[in-house]
Amino acid sequence: MQSPRPSGLKSLGSTTGRFRRWWNHGDLPFRAAIALAGILVLVIVLAIGRELWAHSILPREKFGLAFLTTSTWDPVRQQFGALPFIIGTIETSVLALIMAIPAGIGVAIFLAELAPDWLRAPLGTLIELLAAVPSVVFGLWGLFVFIPDVVKPLGNTLHSAFSFVPLFDGPVYGPSRLAASMILAIMILPTITAVTRDVFLALPRTQSEAAFALGATRWEMIARVLVPQSLSGILGAVILGLGRALGETIAVTMVIGNNPDLSASLLHPGYTMASLIANEFSEATNETYVQALIEIGLVLFVITLLLNMIARLLVWRVARRFTGGTA
């Protein structure tokens, strides 16, 4: 629409004026900067993938898909099968999530809705501090305190109560998949809790008021409004936790026992992809061995990307369902 300009604004019509206005207003440069950052992230991810792919050519050509489905890892005979490590990574991460999600949501509900005022800030800070503890400290603590005091007794109890379930087959070791999962759960708990609490605190007051005005109890408000409306945010928190669990190296290496065991028992030692790379990279002496470890890295990279994409898809679908289809 053209409207006659007041004469005082004429200069804005000139080319330099228009450029300055465009530049100061900042819409286009801002969008360009954002796009550039987005492209940069994509380029970095692709570059990493390409490097991993290019440097794992030897084992890929030699073993093909068998690399993913066989379980012999024998550097001396140049046999490389990654199955136990893939299973170990997924198993410990999923188990950690199963333990950390309900606990994290519970603590977040407490922090956001139930805790008395004087407790919120100190407890929140404590949890954020826990997220900043270096993983090697978790590993040491796990090895010398948590395993003997908690994991071992728990393992014995589980074994004697459910020895007929393959998951709890004996003998009961200290360092085990259970130990790794529990340490991972403790490590990702602060992340999940802190993010979920922030998501809960972002619920508009008008929404909780609407529920209360209809006669909702606090629990009904939490269960029917707060949690459902926060689902996409909670999923985001879970993705962050999962990312940390999948890639966590040193703490897991210290407590999992590092044994490529294919038994189903959680009480037995296991091995993860990240631990394997950390343990063996410095000893890998020939090219196929090094490249097999890089291929492990590639698999970990792809699994992380896939799980992230699945989770994001979930977030997107949930968000669309809850925040109003067309609007």
Binding site: Q207, E209, A210, A213, Q229, F322
Partner: peptide, 9 residues
Amino acid sequence: FQRPNPFPK
């Protein structure tokens, strides 16, 4: 309420 506040359902 003053501002309509339907649930996102």
